[in-house]
Computed example of a mutant assay.
Amino acid sequence: MDIFRALGPAVAHVSPLEAVRAGVGALVGLGLTGLFLLSPNIDLDLGLYLVAPFGASSVLLFAVPNSPLAQPWSAIVGNTVAALVGVAVCMLISDPVFRIALAVGLALTATMLCRAVHPPAGAVAMTAAMNPEAIDLLGFWFALAPIALGTVALVALAALYAFFTGRRYPFRQFDDPSSHGTADREPAERLGLSEDELTQILERYRQSFNLGVEDLARLIGAAELQAAAHSAGPLTADNIMSRDPVSVRPEARLSEVAELFRRHRFTSLPVVGDDAEYLGVIFQIHLINQAKDDALRLGNGFTSALKQLLDRQIRRPVRAGDIMAAAGPRAVKKTPVGALLAMMADDDVDAVPVLEHGRVTGIVTRTDLIAAMARKAVRGE
Rank of each mutant, 00 (worst) to 15 (best):
Q308I: 02
L84W: 01
M126P: 02
V124W: 00
L298V: 12
L235A: 10
G233N: 13
H13I: 06
A159K: 07
A134S: 15
L198C: 10
T182K: 12
M343I: 07
A372Y: 04
A116V: 03
I363F: 07
S67G: 09
P65T: 03
D43A: 14
L260S: 02
I100M: 09
F36Q: 00
G86T: 03
F209H: 13
S178A: 11
V332D: 12
F142P: 04
A52L: 13
T109P: 03
Q313I: 09
L7E: 08
V257G: 05
A83Y: 00
H286R: 02
D322V: 04
A252W: 07
P120H: 04
T361A: 10
F62Y: 13
S94D: 14
G212Q: 05
L113T: 09
L154D: 00
R167A: 11
L225F: 09
S247T: 14
H357M: 08
S94G: 11
L198S: 08
L211G: 01
R265L: 10
A63P: 06
R316Y: 13
C114A: 15
A158Y: 05
F54N: 01
L225A: 08
P177L: 13
V89A: 10
R316C: 10
F164Y: 11
M112D: 14
H264W: 15
P250A: 11
M344S: 01
A295F: 07
R262M: 06
R253F: 08
V155D: 00
D95V: 02
E189F: 09
E18G: 02
A258C: 07
A110H: 07
A217M: 08
G380Q: 09
H230R: 13
A22V: 02
G181V: 12
D347Y: 09
D311A: 10
G212H: 03
A143D: 07
L48P: 00
L235P: 01
T236Q: 09
A237T: 12
V318N: 01
M126D: 04
T109W: 15
C90E: 01
A103C: 07
F36R: 01
R167C: 04
L92Q: 10
S178F: 13
I323N: 05
T151G: 04
I76C: 04
N239F: 14
G301A: 12
G166D: 07
L32V: 14
G358Q: 11
A158G: 06
E256A: 10
K333F: 04
M91F: 09
E381L: 13
R204N: 08
L137A: 15
L102F: 08
R115P: 00
M1G: 15
K376F: 07
D275A: 15
A88N: 03
G321I: 03
V332G: 09
L60C: 08
A229K: 05
Y169C: 00
R5F: 12
A134T: 15
L138R: 11
Y205K: 10
A276S: 15
F140G: 03
Q173D: 14
L48M: 11
G47A: 11
G212R: 03
L191P: 08
R319H: 14
I240W: 00
L191E: 11
T365E: 03
S57I: 02
L296F: 12
E214S: 15
E195P: 02
R297D: 15
R99L: 01
K333E: 14
I282A: 02
R366F: 03
A101N: 05
V318W: 05
T199K: 11
P270A: 09
L60R: 06
F261D: 03
N66W: 06
Q284E: 11
